[in-house]
């Protein structure tokens, strides 16, 4: 029996064999194929070119293509491994692999660190932390006075910056996360374990070529 995934997907830019992606990620070949269904849906929502553009990513996340969000921008940028402004299928699978329940915790912690290292300096700085808190307040309509924001940022920074050099490095981040494990909650997507159930149409209609 032929494989619909291979026949249709080979023409897509950034196509990669599911067996290769399965070997490099926590996903099985069936799961990679099910992810292709999700990828197709997102990548064809505005421009049907087999690539996820930022507006398509925003549309999938917020049901609104124009809703800008600092954190969604950061996630998009980290998924865009080639840094060419779009997410290809291979990038989508490799990046989502970090969110798999079976992915190593160290990978999740490192991903979150890069997410919060807004200026790519290798450190999370106080200014970045405050910028992120303000972005969250803006997004949530939560109102906190500047004094309260300063207090929250100060307290957190002192707690995390154990070396006291005014910036949070990866080692400090790892230690901080071990004390506040809830911070890693959104780095695991239970859905990814059931992805073949969520997108079963492909799996039922095809078999994998050896």
């Amino acid at each position: 029996m032929g494989c619909l995934y291979s026949k249709n997907a080979r023409n897509v830019p950034g196509y990669e064999e599911p067996t290769v992606l399965a070997a490099e990620t926590p996903f099985t070949v069936d799961e990679v194929q099910a992810l292709y269904e999700l990828f197709k849906k997102i990548s064809s929502s505005i421009i049907d070119d087999g690539l996820i553009h930022k507006e398509e990513f925003q549309l999938a996340l917020f049901r609104n293509r124009n809703r800008r969000n600092l954190f969604a921008d950061r996630v998009f940028d980290l998924f865009d491994l080639k840094r060419n402004g779009v997410i290809e299928f291979g990038e989508f699978v490799r990046s989502l692999g970090v969110f798999h329940p079976n992915a190593p915790m160290a990978d999740k912690i490192a991903f979150a660190f890069r997410l919060y290292d807004l200026r790519h300096t290798g450190y999370i700085e106080r200014e970045e932390l405050k910028e992120m808190v303000l972005a969250l307040l803006h997004e949530s309509d939560l109102v906190l006075s500047d004094d309260v924001v300063e207090m929250i940022v100060d307290k957190t920074f002192k707690d995390a910056d154990t070396k006291g050099d005014g910036r949070i490095d990866q080692e400090e981040w790892k230690e901080f996360v071990s004390r506040y494990p809830s911070l890693m909650k959104n780095m695991t997507l239970p859905y990814l374990k059931d992805i073949t159930l969520a997108f079963p149409s492909f799996v039922l209609s095809s078999e994998v070529e050896d």
């Binding site: 996340l61 969250l136 940022v153 307290k155």
Partner: peptide
């Protein structure tokens, strides 16, 4: 938990932009 008892990263992690589960909603 109220924002005042959360640390800054806990507050940030509630962002909708970090909740990728919505990618899987049909």
């Amino acid at each position: 938990t109220t924002p005042l008892t959360m640390n800054a990263f806990e507050l940030i992690s509630t962002s909708q932009g970090l909740n990728l589960s919505s990618l899987f909603e049909k």
